[in-house]
Amino acid sequence: MTLQVGLGQREGRYLLEPEALALVKAAGLPVIEHRTARSAEEAVSAAGQLGYPVALKVVSREIVHKSDADGVQLDVRDAAAVSAAYRRVMDGAARHHAGARMDGVLVCRMARPGVEVILGLTRDPQFGPALMFGLGGIFVELYRDVAFRLVPISERDATEMIREIKGFPLLLATRGRQARDLATVVRCLLTLSRLAESRAEIDALDLNPVILYDEGCVVVDAKVFLAGGDGRS
């Protein structure tokens, strides 16, 4: 993803995506099924286990903006395409970040379509940890349609955050479509609030996007920054 919504410019340590996903999953959030592959063969095998279509993403501590470096291949539909995609990802990364250390490729099951939302955690110098909720894509990039609350949040705060964004009607039932699962967003926000309280070393966290369905949701991309050694945690 090209925009880090909850994050400012940060020093400190950036977790590899498999580590970030593992952290988020351990906290109790639903995370897209994934495997890490270190060769084209491993990628094909992982894709076979996960089921097609899949997405491939470069894993490197030195590449934060993966799609800028051809580091993301979406909707890959068979074994031959996975091999080709693996090479494209590695070549692209090598081309854009010569000498960058590669930690393989993340193979993810493609999430089925839903509404893209963003959940985030940031630390404000005045107020401490704050949670963010917004709609993904153009809503956040162009309109910055996001809502914040300070940690810890209550269930009511979470509900108000969701209702506060201008794009809220897009989450409601319309003709021929059910309402999105807002209760699950509330649960995710409360989970993140607890995570922010228990893990002070997390300086910032961006779940962008989280795909939201009529029932449930799934975290597709996670970025986690740990506080640097400057005592900012």
């Binding site: 404000d124 110098p125 005045q126 107020f127 809502a147 914040f148 300070l150 108000e160």
Partner: peptide, 15 residues
């Protein structure tokens, strides 16, 4: 003043 991020103030005011 450390003016801070307005959207966080906005959230805090509501909360």
């Amino acid at each position: 003043s450390l003016a801070g991020r307005d959207e966080i103030y906005q959230g805090a005011f509501r909360q």
